[in-house]
Simulated assay, not measured.
Amino acid sequence: MSYQFLQPKTLKSGVQIKNRVVLPPMTECMALENGEVSREELRYADIHTGGVGMFITPVAYVNARGKGFEGQLSAAEDRFIPGLRKLARAIQKNGSKAILQIFSVGRMSTSAILRGQQTVSASAVAALRPGAETPVALTATEIEQTITDFGEATRRAIAAGFDGVEIHGANTYLIQQFFSPHSNRRTDKWGGSVEKRMTFPLRIVAEVQRAVKENSNRPFAVGYRFSPEEIEEPGITLADTLKLVAKLDTLGLDYLHVSMGNVWRTSLRDHDDQEPVIKKIQRAVSQTPLISVGSIDTPADAERVMTADIDFVAIGRESIREPQWVEKVVAGAEDSIRYTLPLADLDELGIASPYFDFLAGMDAGGAHIGFVPALNQPTMADAEDPVFKK
């Protein structure tokens, strides 16, 4: 069968993507304690790449106070470039494009993870999560430095040989915190109206694009990831997000990545609105390709995304248990695609104990990573959950 998701696409930057299947950024917790790329991470990348058109790494923090969890990649200093270069080369096997996701975590960290430093955010407002610490509001000077840090992380990604970066503006982290009326209570130019709350995200996009223009002599992609809504009050509404994406659509980005637990989910805030959120986003975007993610397992699931005129389909949880998904589709061996993950397969799939422990911990926290019985074996599930995405 001929699938649309196997067709190539060239991005605005000139980066050529061999198919429309994306491996989205998923937390692995397998980097070294200091943020360097580990052998386990390189092995996992080597096992899981090659078939997909784009492989987006687990998120790397751009400065020391941007670290969100143990075992996270760092792009905060030049000394990390050699390890990042090894990771990029591992991903680029068989033509997969390597995209480094970058962020600062903001208030969604802890002083323990930050080795005694206080968490930071747009304002001194704690997240509505059990045990959340109250952050300190970034000063105007610190905001400008953070923007610069995103540009420097981009420069390092270019030096390391990546094919692009994805700006992580989703999943409650710092960029989203500036856009959110819950976490951003500022009265200066960085907060207030939805237009002012856009200032920080838009400045970061401009800085990353500047870094690409000044440092790359080859096609280099820039994408942006966002979460459409928040359930907090006050929180980000779909109306807010549609204004943001309409603006992002004019900036020459290579793609916009919509972070949701299900491609076809409807509004979290307005339960009477039964139109899929992705349809609303499509109407707001006319110039920029979209990546959609969430509960995509089978080739039929992926093709449904294509027939809805969405440009790329990201396969998360299924890519964990079946790294040869694309290759098996191409070979006409769909019947051999693995949809369960017995414990006996963990080593074969490069899932080291920190990654397994993270998934198990997410299950205990009710994030639907759960161990779903299949053939009397524990099975990984729901890696697309927004909480899981880093």
Score class of each variant (00 low, 15 high):
Ser2Ala: 07
Tyr3Ile: 07
Leu6Cys: 03
Lys9Ile: 08
Gln16Cys: 02
Gln16Val: 00
Ile17Gln: 04
Arg20Gly: 08
Val22Thr: 13
Glu28Ala: 09
Arg43Trp: 04
Thr49Asn: 11
Gly51Pro: 11
Val52Trp: 05
Phe55Arg: 10
Thr57Gly: 11
Pro58Val: 01
Val59Gln: 08
Val62Phe: 07
Ala64Met: 13
Lys67Asn: 11
Gly68Arg: 10
Gly71Asp: 13
Gly71Trp: 04
Phe80Gln: 06
Arg85Met: 11
Arg89Glu: 11
Ala90Asp: 12
Ala90Lys: 13
Gln92Pro: 05
Gly95His: 12
Ile99Leu: 05
Val105Asp: 13
Val105Gln: 15
Ser111Phe: 06
Ala112Phe: 05
Leu114Ala: 14
Arg115Asn: 15
Arg115Ala: 14
Ala122Thr: 08
Leu128Glu: 15
Gly131Arg: 08
Thr134Lys: 14
Ala137Leu: 03
Thr141Asn: 13
Glu142Asn: 11
Thr146Lys: 09
Arg155Trp: 01
Ile158Ser: 07
Ala159Glu: 15
Ala159Lys: 14
Ala160Lys: 10
Gly161Met: 06
Asp163Pro: 00
Gly169Asp: 10
Gly169His: 05
Gly169Thr: 08
Asn171Gln: 12
Thr172Asn: 09
Thr172Ile: 03
Tyr173Gly: 08
Pro181Leu: 07
Pro181Phe: 02
His182Phe: 13
Ser183Asp: 07
Thr187Tyr: 01
Asp188Arg: 03
Asp188His: 02
Lys189Leu: 11
Ser193Asp: 10
Glu195Leu: 06
Met198Phe: 12
Thr199Ala: 09
Pro201Asn: 10
Glu207Thr: 11
Glu207Arg: 15
Val222Lys: 02
Pro234Asp: 11
Thr241Val: 01
Leu242Trp: 05
Leu253Ile: 01
Tyr255Arg: 03
Met260Asp: 06
Asn262Trp: 00
Thr266Tyr: 08
Ser267Lys: 11
Arg269Val: 12
Pro276Val: 05
Pro276Met: 04
Lys279Asp: 13
Ala284Trp: 01
Ser286Tyr: 05
Ser292Trp: 00
Gly294Cys: 06
Ser295Arg: 14
Thr298Gln: 12
Asp301Val: 03
Ala302Cys: 13
Ala302Trp: 10
Arg304Val: 03
Asp309Glu: 14
Phe312Ala: 04
Val313Lys: 06
Gly316Ser: 13
Ser319His: 14
Ile320Ala: 02
Ala331Trp: 02
Glu334Arg: 00
Ile337Trp: 09
Arg338Tyr: 05
Ala344His: 08
Ala344Ile: 09
Leu346Thr: 13
Glu348Asp: 15
Leu349Gly: 11
Gly350His: 08
Gly350Ile: 06
Tyr355Met: 15
Asp357Val: 08
Asp357Tyr: 12
Asp357Thr: 14
Gly366Lys: 02
Gly366Met: 03
Gly370Ser: 12
Gly370Tyr: 11
Pro373Glu: 12
Pro378Ser: 09
Ala383Gln: 09
